[in-house]
Design a protein around this nucleic acid. Structure first.
Ligand SMILES: [Zn+2]
Ligand SMILES: [Zn+2]
Ligand SMILES: [Zn+2]
Ligand SMILES: [Zn+2]
Lengths: 139, 139
DNA sequence: AACAATTTGAATTTGTTTCTCAATTACCAC
DNA sequence: GTGGTAATTGAGAAACAAATTCAAATTGTT
């Protein structure tokens, strides 16, 4: 179980809820997933893991730096495993599709803007909202 | 009362709660203010206006395009009168200070990124988080 | 003043996330 | 393996921002 190593490395005891939640987050289909949706998948899998535990474990993973937390428009937090390189997000307002992108020029300008304003930059959030072309065009 | 004209232009009846809330939002000291804080100021002013009305009126102002709504890190919505030119925000994580900035290059790149990914861009949110230098450096 | 339509305040509800606490489980030492 | 201890869990309650409900009050218009 490579999940076990990940958990131990993060200083967390190896427990069933944490293994299951980690597995769900690691699945390619579940990038950018909400706590509620993690919980739904656990239910479908027949696991008896409480919603409070899901929130708790996600926060622990966040503290341990295992994942990134996003706040897309519309309220709830969205999580994604964070081993990848930094990137920002495009979100379709119609179908909810999320596209990741990196733009070095934007990143560089952000640093310059912060410097110009005497702020030591720690992180940033950039979300581009729009509509998929042409698939979500009408509807 | 120029507030009355603003409200009428937005298709809203001129009522005391709306005038008072509009006044608060227009005060230079109250850029980037939360609903809760608008309510607190009303209380200090001795106005008997309910919190539900504050939320309702802020939504109406938002629908009417009178203000912009932001989601800074840490939960609640933050509002600002929206007659100004588009801008993005730097936020100090220690003292909460908000600095506005515009960067045409970043704006342009965003449009290009959206085009490249076949998304018709409607809007975006960009927040830079950090620590004021040198004032909030330690503490 | 009279009227319909809108708006309001108080209380209730919703939706997301956190907290509490007793029962369970993981991990370390023996 | 067994025992001990601290960490973890599930269920429910609580917290929090925000939206909704509805009877009463207010607005803008005759
Ligand atoms: Zn970025
Ligand atoms: Zn991503
Ligand atoms: Zn911008
Ligand atoms: Zn601003």
């Amino acid at each position: 179980m490579e999940q076990n190593q990940e958990l131990k490395k993060a200083g967390l005891k190896v427990t069933l809820p944490r293994i299951k939640i980690l597995e769900i987050l690691q699945a390619p289909a579940n990038q950018h997933i909400s706590a509620e949706d993690v919980y739904k998948i656990l239910l479908e899998q027949g696991e008896e893991i409480g919603l409070a535990t899901v929130y708790r474990v996600l926060n622990q993973f966040d503290d341990a730096g295992l994942l990134d937390r996003h706040h897309f428009e519309g309220g709830k937090s969205v999580f994604e495993m964070g081993q990848k390189k930094h990137h920002d997000h495009l979100v379709c307002l119609k179908c909810g599709k999320v596209i990741e992108f990196e733009d070095d020029l934007i990143e560089k300008r952000q640093i310059e803007v912060a410097e110009k304003n005497n702020i030591k930059l720690t992180h940033h959030s950039l979300y581009l909202y729009g509509v998929c072309q042409p698939s979500c065009e009408d509807r």
